[in-house]
Amino acid sequence: MFSQYFGQYLLQQGYITSTQLREAMEMKKNTHVRLGVIAIDRGDMTALDVEDVHQEQMRRDKKFGSLAVEKGYITNDALEAMLNAQKQPHLLLGQSLVDDHVLTLQEYTDVLDQYKQEHALTDEEFDAFQRGDIDLIIEKMVSLGALKDQGLAHDYIALLSRNFIRFVEPNLRIENAEVASIADWTVTQKIHGEETLYTALCADEATFTQIAAKYAEEDIHGPTELAQAAVGELLNLHNGLFTVNMSNKGTELEMEPQLVHHNQALAHTGASTVFHVHLPFGSCQIVLSEEPLL
């Protein structure tokens, strides 16, 4: 996830062009090694074991390695060895930029230092950021706006990042956005109980369709009934996991059925915050509000 933020920074600062960034990210994507693949490669787990952990991740908000240890597939020592073996994504981005002579090694080092200073990151925080510590990334890179319960909003967006990475696309970047204009497609869902939160996922038709196809793992072309059900279910699954996490913290919440809308304007107030989720194939918006969106 750091690569998405850092790559955007390099682009904005004029160090690289959008084409160079795209090519570097593509090269990085092709060389990213998932923990499950490393586990198979090392002979620590079978493909069925890995699939079992992936299935479990769809029900519980836990990291692959923790679940693999919990289920007895690997020991803590094996996990540590696997993590050491996993290439750091930011190194892959840097490596591809240097290999392609877009940046010299020194320029790359300098711009990393500059990035750290501009975002007021300590050495420890920078290490955590590079390792993809989502809580830290959300804390440093995203404003939660005027939402009264900032902790709740932070937990919501951090979990959303993890769920998008798990179920849709690992290469993403979340940042604040202006109030959304009318999107082609919008899914809304109300969460209520001890807290009230109105949630929405908005996207143009092409991005909506791609999100649907990736989440459903189905051949989907266009905003069909299945596409609408898939994106609706993605928001529903995410909100469901959120209510489980909140229940574990002592806050009981309920959900209303999700609704899918076409060309629907949302009622934004001071109590809503909008986030852009940038994906390689397009962007969608997530809206969080303490007041009704419709």
Binding site: L237, G240, L241, S247, N248, E252, E254
Partner: peptide, 8 residues
């Protein structure tokens, strides 16, 4: 069958 599998 639910996505909201809280103890409650």
């Amino acid at each position: 069958v639910s996505s909201a599998g809280t103890q409650t």
